[in-house]
Amino acid sequence: MPELTSFTQPSGGADDRANTAGAPAARSPRALTTALRPDGDRVGVKVCGELDLDTSERFRSALREALSRSVRGVDLDLGGVSFCDCAALNILLALRQQALKQDKTVAIHVSSTAVDRLLALTGTQALFADPDGESPAAEDTRITGDFDEELRIEVAQLRRAMRTRPTIDLARGVLMASFNLSPADAWTVLVTVSQHTNTKLHTLAGDLVTAVQGEALPEELREQLSTAVAKVNSVDGESRLR
């Protein structure tokens, strides 16, 4: 396998290694789980866990499968979603567009606080209204003694997402420079290796950036990386021959 091209990561401050003094620690990420359930001519999808960049491909795949199996559309239960960012919203919007082309609908029947806030902030709640005219049912968001704590946790999670994204972008640059990949192919390689090694996307990205600074990658990771790069190159080669 070719050696990774040297790529310098900007030095970070103490905030890159630890939370700011006094800031609450973010909770450990919950694994994403999805369950599909046929319901007449529609398919229900129950989602639990965190919806972010790391889990976006699994979320997208589950929704695509549900849409393809349905006759009239997809009903979502997002009551178990503890974190939701714009990556998940983009997937929902793309699914809605695809559904409309097939004369289907996508409705959110149950919405957690995290999902409801994102939809409210972006003004997209009405796009996922129940086909029967009911609005998405959000969790009770009345101000309680736990509200401030929930807000602090949410802010900590958002900070975590902001810290990991630059590293992921650096890793994409490393792969593009090392293997002459396009931005899209570099992203495909990252996601593929992350899934096959059961490694968080931002953790894998950090390993790749560290590798170009002299630290060797584990053998399993090198093998998966070689396989993923060879696969995207093969696909690109077949496309050029057509």
Rank of each mutant, 00 (worst) to 15 (best):
L201D: 00
I143C: 04
L158N: 03
N180F: 15
N233Q: 15
T141R: 15
P218L: 08
E223Q: 10
A228T: 00
L190D: 00
K200P: 15
S234Q: 14
T227K: 07
I153W: 07
G173R: 14
A177R: 04
D169Y: 05
F147P: 03
I153A: 07
S226V: 04
V209R: 05
D140C: 11
T192V: 11
D185Q: 04
M162N: 11
P183R: 00
V155D: 08
E154S: 07
A156W: 03
M162I: 11
T203Y: 05
T188M: 08
V232S: 13
R160A: 13
A216R: 12
A228N: 02
D148R: 00
T199A: 05
T167P: 00
S178Y: 01
E134Y: 02
D132G: 07
F179Q: 10
A205L: 09
L208V: 05
P166D: 05
I143K: 04
P136Q: 09
G133A: 09
K200T: 13
V174Y: 14
S135V: 10
R222K: 11
S135C: 06
K200N: 13
R172S: 01
V174C: 15
D132S: 10
G206W: 02
A228Y: 02
M176P: 08
R222V: 13
V174M: 15
P166C: 04
T197R: 11
F179Y: 15
G173V: 04
L204K: 06
R222M: 13
L225H: 01
A186G: 09
L170W: 10
G206L: 01
R142L: 11
L181A: 10
A184E: 12
P136C: 10
E223G: 09
A156H: 01
D146E: 14
V191L: 14
G214L: 02
E134S: 02
P183E: 06
S178C: 02
